[in-house]
Design a protein around this nucleic acid. Structure first.
Lengths: 121, 121
DNA sequence: TTTGAAAATGATAATCATTTTCATTTGTGA
DNA sequence: TCACAAATGAAAATGATTATCATTTTCAAA
């Protein structure tokens, strides 16, 4: 049982509260932090165990970690240039909740992404 | 552009309409079918492109393929047993459209999944 | 029937995230 | 200082997925 390295959590916060293990690792390297990839993985895993961060999945299956306290939001992503806009999802929250209730699901979370071509492309 | 090998689809059906690429491959091997892993992946991918099967993710990130109807819909997935309910997403369609308009995006698509614990678990 | 281009196939190698191993370092209490 | 447990991280292992590329199959036209 390992405890989380505090610098990992702090980096995840600085990353906007939303990143993969590889991204956290690269970010720490770029900032001159001395840390091993193994420790980044272990720390993130233990943060998930402690319910301090959520574990989600990118479309390609890569694990992404999100601070639980972060305000929940969604993304509007350009398929061409990758530009991303954070958007509100009030309608989604209500939809997810009502669907879950209707089918007797509990402890529900959700993912929702919109992708298209932005005005610049 | 490759078309799907029909034996792959038939195997996925026989598997209960729900399996990973590796599982489909092993199942076909066990049944004496001569097919390569590459072809299994390609066939499943093209079935996804043709919207004949849905691509979801196990907790560990492994891709799982699931037969679905043609009508656009979303999923309510149990994190514990994998049980899946297909649900309507009228609210999502409107939300995605209005968000895209607001930010000048065109050719938009979207993904939305709800996950939780079902009443049986 | 023969031919040839395009599509499909599959063995193999490459990729890439993640996990495991294990030797070393660090922290801590006696 | 000593001993020992916990933490660390480099390197290897793992496992799914994708890329390569030579070979085979399909099929329509000659």
């Amino acid at each position: 049982m390992s405890r989380s390295n505090p610098r990992v959590l702090s980096t995840l916060e600085r990353a906007g509260g939303f990143a993969s293990a590889q991204e956290v690792y690269k970010l720490m390297q770029r900032e001159g932090e001395k840390i091993g990839l193994t420790t980044v993985y272990r720390s993130l895993q233990s943060l998930v165990d402690d319910k301090i961060v959520d574990l989600l999945r990118r479309e390609d299956g890569e694990a992404i970690y999100r601070l639980c306290g972060e305000k929940h939001h969604h993304h509007l992503v350009c398929k061409s240039c990758g530009d991303t806009v954070e958007i509100e999802g009030g309608a989604i929250e209500k939809w997810a909740k009502s669907m879950a209730d209707e089918h007797g699901f509990r402890d529900v979370g959700h993912t929702a992404e919109i992708f298209g071509i932005c005005s610049k492309c």
